[in-house]
Design a binder for these strands. Sequence first.
DNA 1: CCCCCGTTTCACCTTGCGGTGAATTCGGCA
DNA 2: TGCCGAATTCACCGCAAGGTGAAACGGGGG
Lengths: 202, 202
Amino acid sequence: MNLPGRARSGRRPGQSETRAQILRAAREAFGRESYEGATIRSIALAAGVDPALVIHFFGSKAGLFSAAMELPYVPAEAFTTLIRGEPSELGERFARFFVELSQSEPARGRFLGLIRSAVSEAAAAAMLNDYIVAEVFGPLTSLLRLPMPELRAALVASQFVGLMFSREILGLEALTSADCEPLVALLAPTFQGYLSSPSATG
Amino acid sequence: MNLPGRARSGRRPGQSETRAQILRAAREAFGRESYEGATIRSIALAAGVDPALVIHFFGSKAGLFSAAMELPYVPAEAFTTLIRGEPSELGERFARFFVELSQSEPARGRFLGLIRSAVSEAAAAAMLNDYIVAEVFGPLTSLLRLPMPELRAALVASQFVGLMFSREILGLEALTSADCEPLVALLAPTFQGYLSSPSATG
DNA sequence: CCCCCGTTTCACCTTGCGGTGAATTCGGCA
DNA sequence: TGCCGAATTCACCGCAAGGTGAAACGGGGG
């Protein structure tokens, strides 16, 4: 029997879905606020759970962050398949891929969380750095036959990061309200240039 | 006479240069860490000063931030003069300007501070947003005669922000170690495209 | 039927933060 | 010379954060 005036504690009946709920709330919080801004307490509140339970499951805030942002954000072979195919449309394929990536939900939240947290959390910056090196640099440097492949891959990544940052964090109105197609049309030549132009200098 | 065992308090002799010292330390701290990460205490320590003095001068942490990041980061007419001149070299002028801007010191620290802080501090995001709209959108939308000038200006800004973020915060090795000229050579066509291509779609 | 073990909560500790108020020292002006 | 006001420090407050330890609960295997 439940004592009145005292909240129930101990195990709830039924299958435990709480862990997944916490992860969902964490992903949402880290995508909306910075690493420090998203507190364990706020995440626990959003998940309808005691803060101590979060620590119980994930050990620490850093552990929760790693679990919430866990790879893969994007199927590993995505970039590889993107590079194969008609070379003259390389830029447009990349542009369309990135624009969709920045809007479709599982990936968008994780990238945003990583970008937001990278500024204050070295571990987050390293996660994103590693991901870019492994998933973008890898395919690009091995499949492109051009000078300075790492620099090209880095510029591709930098344009994508800048796009997410400007739209989601700065809230540049021209980007938040832009339609998909004009955006792709303007971005396509950029990626095409990074991925195919012989680059006079160097 | 100085009582032993007790630190001196009260006014220091000589001309007071302390305020500027605090601002310098703040700029350095906000450029290196996020808004929350850079504490008043740490800034005061770096400036060799009591934390309360910082509050005394600037009222609050937000006031200190505003004072440290104060405009103008870049001469207001810079973009205007950049747009005039040989249209075929527009992209290269922008590329060179941004690459130098991201490396020369008064501007670099302030932009980095704003970018770092924008993720957690709405005021910082607004400052940077306003700056971009006023200094970049203004000249570009009035001087360019092309469809969707705001979107073009936003993409220019996004590539610059992405560049600073990828190099300074993520620390992408290909960017930190890149020479100036190849970088300019690869960036130039991007800006040229954003600022001149007729953009089939739209 | 009962007891073990994972789940969940509560109460609480420590730390570091931004900020306040008063005291102290000194430069400069009348 | 005397004193006002700016500069500077100290001691301290209140708060919210991350994290701890133990107790309460209840599902499921013996």
